[in-house]
Design a protein around this nucleic acid. Structure first.
Lengths: 242, 242
DNA sequence: AAGTGGTCTAGACCACGTC
DNA sequence: ACGTGGTCTAGACCACTTT
């Protein structure tokens, strides 16, 4: 058995914590298989059923993916099904095809009050700011301004962004070993100001969706803060409430 | 054992289906305890573990609520924790206090193309339309226009609405035996038109969040279609992405 | 003390994928 | 044939609530 933690938690949750550590430490990498339930049971000295319950929870949180007959895998942003996990924008009429990401700009700066609070870093710490466009079937629909902690994203340049064909999080995963596991979005309606009119092809004052997102990696550490302006004339933000 | 269904599904899912039927049929009512796991196991001729798995899924879907030592209860909209289950609007600065619902109007009509499609009824079928205001700390923030199938909501009048102090869904539950279990929202940014300016205290063209919601009861049957216009100057729509 | 859900175990068999 | 996760069982003990 596992020695009891100071604050009590059931055995399967302790196992889950140990498995989380293995994920954080990079022992199991995105896309790879993790050991079988029997092996994990032997390693942690518990029954298979207890491992199963830990894996169940992690699968429910989209951290692991079970595949019958093959094994259990670490979730990856490379998986095409993961594309719309954080992007809830859907075309009104057209097909649901992944949009194209067009990087516009990428520069270094120092964190201001808001960025430092959102990213849980000190004011003045280096950050990287990315501006990019999201195009659905050729039409620009989203302008994103993305704030990243400079310490983690060293080496991120416009060239790197431009030479990557997949999703942004897919790039972050392979290039910086970062897996996004959770996000929080604050949505408001705003009027388009001059700086976005050109990019989205609208006139000043046009209603836009402002979507502010903070994204977290393992250990609930915020590693991305972004603000997107969504043109919702031909698209809508879809939210399932369960 | 339960006789096998024509299309195979695991035993615990068959049990879940039977329990869903008991909910739909009103055998177990919102707020009430359901039989203990042992009793259910005896009733369905399966082991307690199998019942447990069925209950687990239903609890994960917010249909049931487990309370250790007391029993398992049918979820209810009377539960104060259920208030913000479908309402994702949060004040920027103030406390999170439940808003007040102010019914403005309630009238009968016949379903048009859009309403009939959304509510899965025939065009021309009777519907009831409700207009109401949502006030956060006295300030009007949301105008809702709510379309309900007339057949289900017979007897719903402005007086009924005005004499009810709880949430709408709480009223629907006690008065019409309807439990909302799932909803889908389509969100867009729009400009305020004349008809809502007074209610929300904004000028024409002010950006508003348009939130269209279809709400489903047991059996994935749509029983409400509403469009809300949210003033997001002092509030935002919060969405957790997991 | 009795009854509830919560955890944990051990073992059996099934369904799926690979060799 | 073998290994994986998926299902099902039976029984034990724990934690919480009520009587």
């Amino acid at each position: 058995m596992i020695p009891e933690a100071p604050t009590f938690s059931p055995l399967y949750r302790q196992i889950k914590d140990l498995m989380m550590q293995a994920l954080e430490a990079g022992e199991w990498r995105p896309g790879q298989v993790i050991p079988s339930e029997q092996e994990l049971a032997a390693r942690f000295n518990v029954s298979q059923g207890t491992v199963r319950k830990a894996v169940d929870e992690m699968a429910a949180e989209n951290l692991l993916v079970r595949k019958q007959g093959k094994g259990t895998f670490v979730a990856s942003h490379h998986d095409p099904r993961a594309f719309f996990r954080f992007l809830r924008l859907v075309p009104l009429n057209a097909d649901i095809t992944p949009p194209a990401s067009v990087p516009l700009d990428c520069w270094r700066a120092k964190a201001g009050q808001e960025a430092s609070r959102m990213l849980d870093i000190k004011p003045g710490d280096p950050i990287i700011i990315v501006r990019r466009l999201l195009k659905f079937s050729g039409q620009p629909v989203v302008v994103d301004e993305i704030y990243l902690p400079g310490e983690i994203f060293q080496g991120l340049t416009l060239e790197v962004l431009q030479s990557w064909s997949g999703s942004l999080y897919s790039l972050f995963e392979t290039r910086f070993g970062l897996r996004m596991i959770r996000a929080q979005e604050r949505i408001r309606a705003v009027a388009a100001d001059r700086s976005v009119c050109d990019a989205l092809g609208v006139t000043e004052g046009h209603p836009l969706l402002s979507v502010e997102r903070v994204t977290y990696t393992y250990g609930d550490k915020p590693v991305e803060w972004r603000r997107g302006l969504y043109l919702t004339d031909e698209h809508y933000y879809l939210n399932e409430l369960n």
